[in-house]
Design a protein around this nucleic acid. Structure first.
Length: 863
RNA sequence: GCCGGGAUGGCGGAAUUGGUAGACGCACGGGACUCAAAAUCCCGCGGUGGUAACACCAUGGGGGUUCGAUUCCCCCUCCCGGCACCA
């Protein structure tokens, strides 16, 4: 063994052995329990960032731990390779997205390999390959056949200057990112996947996901947003008459409705605007701006009367019909009944436009006297001012009103979802082509299976003026599969969430000539899924949905894809930017700026290093390519080695914590590995010994074994149950510190030290596998760490004759006592009461009570 | 705005089921080694008072439950994630 730790050599040797043995190739093996360890695959943005290192190190730690525990493990990797950044990169540097993507994959794969992850690369997938995306197309067609895919219009951001659809990310303060033009909402036809058909199952199965964090399940539940209410019809005589339908969860307040509001895109609004130029202008104004819910929910609530009215279904009263920007066409009926007395938003709106406010509920908090708004106004209560419904409580009133509406054919109880169907059409080039052909005679015709995959040309370069597929004759021109006449290919591509909704199933069937084969039923569900908390809703919900669709098509037996979920906290970093003249934002990497801070560390000013001019500070946020605040781990790996990078990342915080990036502490991680190396070296230099197996030990050596095995006990629990690794490292640091203080070269001592070093090496090996490989070989000549199993705790080492108890007086620490393990409660109380420090504090007081917590403390309550 | 989460020394964090707050590490200060530096090793390190023993205060802020609260409950502030076309 070399005296000095050289990460470069150690890591090269370990990796060479793993390669030679093809150590991480996984095969189906029914003799062992399987463990499918899945990490969210990366978008090949160019370089790994610290979030990736964190994610994949966590996955690798769990993979290696379970391998040692005797599981048949499989850890695959792949690339979420379609998406917008490739098109942006193409525009910026005139490289085709395909080349850019494949180059990035090659580089990032090299980085992942250098980190020594136990990945089975034979299962690698890249979603931008025809071998992968043909199955997106194939399943799309199956879903189309079963009515799970259908077409309807959807709202998109439209840049009127570039004449192109913009992603939400490309809309900044309501303007196009390149043109600075005010963005407009536009309705276009799109394909939808009917996830709402699966809403009930997606909701009810959440309860069975015992390995998922409660917060994620709660977020999904709220996102699906099943709510019970009443659909209410307001008859009207507009354009020959009809009924305006709304949905409400507060039918008990129907008698307090004083107006009705519809979305700007609602047919009645369009109708009213035909004869009302002011209203038409208002509707146009409502169309300005982006489509995100956050933007709509925070914008100023505005409205305009249409001059039309609808009839209250129970009172026959005429209620004014308004158009309001806070009513969303895509949610519910695109219309709401407004009860200003009991809804905060309606209340503010009524105040602004002098609409009547009619209290109809008496809540527990008292009478409903308007202005200013109080939370209590929205509480459930007893009906008042409601005619025959007076005195009814919430449930009674809803039942009675729903029954009366139903008798008039103007309503019924109804369940609604907040969840909307999933629009998958994207007006973009770099994605899976939607396998549809448009024929003048036959309409939209599905591409026959034997013509799949519809291949995406790989040599186009977008220029910002829309989808380049629209200008690519070779792609566009085709023949109709039905009638054989010349036809036009669909140019929309699929949302990249489609790609990521089933990649974990494809990992199980590498090379299969179908979407998935029977090997998937061996591996699925994934035993552990690890990825960023930012995916808590969309990606995880879509994946659950696709898995269920595939199950219903008989492709898999799995209903839920991920048995256990670990949501990794984000790695955050500072964001710096400068706004251009129009609207474009230029981001600056943290190492491109200089900061001035006050003595509390608050950032006062930021200047660009390049030009010395001021730069704006955008707070902290997730590391991302687009914000240029990602930190490339390559420097760290080159300077300190993969093990230090892995150790540092795991030591910095528990996996689920948000982590503000700082490299402070890397030195400490590196120092620890050096100390560990030196400790093993110093030990083996004195000759090879066998680990302790039995025999009398001094008090000190017993204590050493006690610490070794309590560390092992704690660490086993941290890996298996808690999935927290910073404490694994900390307790092994303590163990090494204790070993360093042991100055004993006797034969029993050397055996105890051998045992401790062997166990420390095994305990740390999932985190730092390379150095552990070398240390293991040094401690046990001829042994190979890959073949080692997880060690077991020696219960006899944990036995103690005496224990220390803390003594409190009135909850404050006043002393410690040592008692025999077998001491009775009375003996403990006596010892506690008579210990000198304690006496000082209870002198002259009456002891009211003594609380003894076995093995922990004694609290004397006195007064 | 809505949904979810977080806040503990100068910094990252520990305290696992309500039981010794600050483990472990970073930074910093002092010392040893050295011609010197680096590396390494040893000691100190929440605040206030005190020579010290020790005492009091302290887990974002305010209240509550309890013998005992970083942990449970209520209210508030700030920060982070998501909000359906970033992935």
């Amino acid at each position: 063994m070399q005296a000095h730790y050289s990460p470069r050599e150690v890591e090269a040797q370990a990796q060479q052995l793993w390669n030679e043995r093809n150590a991480f190739a996984a095969t189906e093996d029914n003799a062992k329990p399987k463990y499918y360890c899945l990490s969210m695959f990366p978008y090949p943005s160019g370089k790994l960032h610290m979030g990736h290192v964190r994610n994949y190190t966590i996955g690798d730690v769990l993979t290696r731990f379970h391998q040692m525990k005797g599981y048949n493990v499989m850890q695959p990797m792949g690339w979420d390779a379609f998406g917008l950044p490739a098109e942006n990169a193409a525009m910026a540097s005139n490289v085709a997205p395909a080349k850019w993507t494949y180059d990035n994959i090659a580089y990032m794969k090299k980085q992942l390999k250098s980190l020594g992850f136990a990945i089975d690369w034979s299962r690698e997938v890249a979603t931008c390959t025809p071998e992968y995306y043909r199955w997106n197309q194939w399943l799309f067609l199956r879903m189309l056949e079963r009515g799970i895919v259908y077409q309807k219009t959807g709202t998109v951001n439209w840049d009127p200057v570039d004449q192109t659809v913009l992603a939400n990310e490309q809309v900044i303060d309501g303007r196009g990112w390149r043109t600075g033009a005010v963005v407009e909402k536009r309705e276009i036809p799109m394909y939808y996947m009917s996830i709402t058909q699966y809403a009930d199952e997606l909701l009810s199965e959440l309860d069975k996901l015992s390995g998922w964090p409660e917060q994620v399940k709660l977020m999904q539940k709220n996102w699906i947003g099943k709510s019970f209410g009443v659909r209410v019809g307001f008859p009207h005589s507009i354009e020959g008459g009809g009924t305006l339908w709304v949905f409400t969860t507060r039918a008990d307040t129907l008698m307090g409705a004083t107006y009705v509001a519809v979305a700007a895109e609602h047919p009645l609004a369009t109708l009213a605007a035909q004869t009302n130029p002011a209203l038409a202008a208002f509707i146009e104004e409502c169309k300005k701006g982006g489509v995100t819910e956050a933007e709509l929910a925070t914008q100023e609530k505005k409205g305009m009367a249409t001059g039309l009215s609808v009839t209250h279904p129970l009172t026959g009263e005429q209620l004014p019909l308004w158009v309001a920007n806070y009513v969303l066409m895509g949610y519910g009926e695109g219309a709401v009944m407004a009860v200003p007395a009991h809804d905060e938003r309606d209340f503010a709106f009524a105040g602004k436009y002098a609409l009547p406010i009619k209290p109809v509920i008496r809540t527990a908090s008292g009478d409903t006297t308007p202005a200013p708004w109080q939370e209590a106004y929205a509480e459930h209560g007893t009906c008042i001012n409601s005619g025959k419904y007076d005195g009814l409580n919430f449930d009674q009133a809803v039942d009675a009103i729903a029954a009366d509406l139903s008798a008039k054919n103007l309503g019924e109880k109804k369940t609604t979802l907040r969840l909307r169907d999933w629009g998958i059409s994207r007006q973009r080039y770099w994605g899976t082509p939607i396998p549809i052909i448009h024929c003048e005679t036959c309409g939209s015709v599905p591409v026959p299976d034997d013509q799949l995959p519809v291949r995406l040309p790989e040599d186009l370069i977008p220029d910002g003026s829309g989808n380049p597929l629209n200008k690519c004759a070779a792609f566009l021109n085709c023949t109709c599969p039905k009638c054989g006449k010349a036809a036009r290919r669909e140019t929309d591509t699929m949302d990249t969430f489609v790609d990521s909704s089933w990649y974990f199933l494809r990992y199980c069937s590498p090379g299969a000539d179908k979407m998935v084969d029977e090997r998937a039923s061996y591996w699925m569900p994934a035993d552990q899924y690890i990825g960023g908390i930012e995916h808590a809703i969309l990606h995880l919900l879509y994946s659950r949905f696709w898995t269920k669709v595939m199950r219903d098509l008989g492709l898999t037996k799995t209903s839920e894809p991920f048995a256990n979920l670990l949501t990794q906290g984000m790695v955050l970093n500072h964001i710096f930017f400068r706004k251009g003249d129009k609207s474009g934002i230029t981001y600056f990497a943290p190492d491109e700026v200089d900061l001035t801070r006050d003595d509390k560390g608050t950032i006062l000013s930021v200047k660009s290093r390049a030009d010395g001019e001021p730069v704006e500070y955008g707070g902290i946020g997730t590391m991302s390519k687009s914000k240029k605040n990602g930190v490339d781990p390559q420097g760290l790996i080159e300077q300190y080695g993969a093990d230090t990078a892995r150790l540092f990342m795991m030591f910095a915080a528990p996996p689920e914590n948000t982590l503000e990036w700082s490299d402070a502490g890397v030195e400490g991680a590196s120092r620890f590995l050096n100390r560990l190396w030196k400790a093993v070296h110093a030990h083996v230099e004195k000759g090879v010994v066998a680990a302790y197996v039995g025999g009398d030990l001094s008090v000190e050596l017993k204590a050493m074994r006690f610490q070794t095995h309590s560390t092992l006990q704690k660490v086993s629990d941290d890996y298996a149950r808690r999935k927290i690794f910073n404490t694994v490292i900390a307790s092994n640091m303590e163990l090494l510190n204790a070993l360093g203080k042991l100055n004993d070269d006797s034969a029993p001592a050397r055996a105890v030290v051998q045992e401790a070093l062997e166990l420390a090496t095994l305990m740390l090996s999932p985190i730092v596998p390379h150095i552990s490989h070398a240390l293991w070989a040094a401690l046990k000549p001829g042994a190979v760490l890959l073949e080692a199993s997880w060690p077991t705790v020696d219960a006899s080492a944990l036995e103690q004759d005496e224990i220390e108890l803390v003594v409190q007086v009135n909850g404050k620490l006043r002393g410690q006592i040592r008692v025999a393990k077998s001491a009775s409660k009375e003996q403990i109380e006596d010892l506690a009461r008579t210990s000198p420090n304690v006496q000082k504090f209870i002198e002259g007081l009456m002891i009211k009570k003594i609380v003894v917590v076995p093995g922990r403390l004694v609290n004397i309550v006195a007064g």
